[in-house]
Design a protein around this nucleic acid. Structure first.
Length: 223
DNA sequence: AAAACTCACAACCGCAAATCC
DNA sequence: CGGATTTGCGGTTGTGAGTTT
């Protein structure tokens, strides 16, 4: 999912329904694959009213779906900025590198791949990349050689020092602490993709919903 | 030609976090 | 402040399409 969807609570929260009626009434909702008509209703509604308040959206849009289902359909399939199509080799490698560093944080990984969704990346990982890594002799879970590798230190240090700030933060909270001398920069920068299309560090990190803290790479160290 | 099997991906489920009242 | 509710995330499942036997 892209950065604008980051954070447990967003401005899209609907105040009028917050903390009231029970969650989605499943008794009278459609399930399974979406029809073209349902897609059109959802697209038309969001074009007219924008995203937000998923709870009340289905009724307002004339859909017999729960809000959760509408949100998922829009984010994963109907959004106009989705890229679709095959993943490029560069995207493959970026996913592998990010996964090695942060694990199954699909939404964070998706935030670094413009036009890709967390669900898409998760599926792609499970169907393609896992096998690709196994074929390379790499365990897709640990990113270590399958035949056993003694050097766990690099990976563990990566994992330990990466902290994920999942929610939007103020500029102050994103400032690196002086004490631990960490640098706060975007992943692409650390991975050497700065300036690429996937890199967002040309934008102020204060505006980014996701940031990471980790020590700067030593000279010659691989990300 | 058709049954069995495999693959890819859309959609669902359950939980945790965020927020409101 | 705590309970109630919504939203968002990651894991899992269902199913249609493609391939093999």
């Amino acid at each position: 999912m892209l950065s604008q969807y980051k954070g447990r609570r967003s401005s899209s929260m609907c105040p009028s329904t917050m903390g009231r009626s029970p969650c989605c009434e499943k008794a009278h909702t459609n399930r399974g694959a979406w029809t073209k008509e349902e897609d059109q209703l959802l697209i038309a509604y969001i074009k007219a009213h924008g995203e937000g308040c998923w709870r009340s959206l289905p009724k307002a849009a004339g859909l017999q779906r729960c809000g959760k289902s509408c949100r998922l359909r829009w984010i994963n399939y109907l959004r106009p900025d989705l890229k679709r199509g095959n993943f490029t080799g560069e995207e493959d490698e970026l996913i592998i590198k990010l996964h090695r560093m942060i694990g199954n944080k699909w939404s964070v990984i998706a935030g670094r791949l413009p036009g890709r969704t967390d669900n898409e990346i998760k599926n792609y990982w499970n169907t393609h990349i896992k096998r690709k890594l196994i074929a390379r002799g790499i365990d897709p879970k640990t990113h270590l050689p399958i035949d056993g590798c003694s050097d766990h230190s690099a990976l563990s240090s990566d994992r330990q020092t990466v902290s994920v700030a999942a929610a939007p933060q103020s500029e102050e909270t994103l400032q690196p602490s002086v004490e631990n001398r960490l640098q706060t920069i975007c992943f692409c920068y650390r991975l050497g993709f700065q300036g690429s299309e996937a890199c967002s560090c040309h934008k102020s990190y204060a505006k980014s919903f996701v940031s990471f803290q980790y020590p700067p790479l030593e000279e010659g160290q691989q990300a």
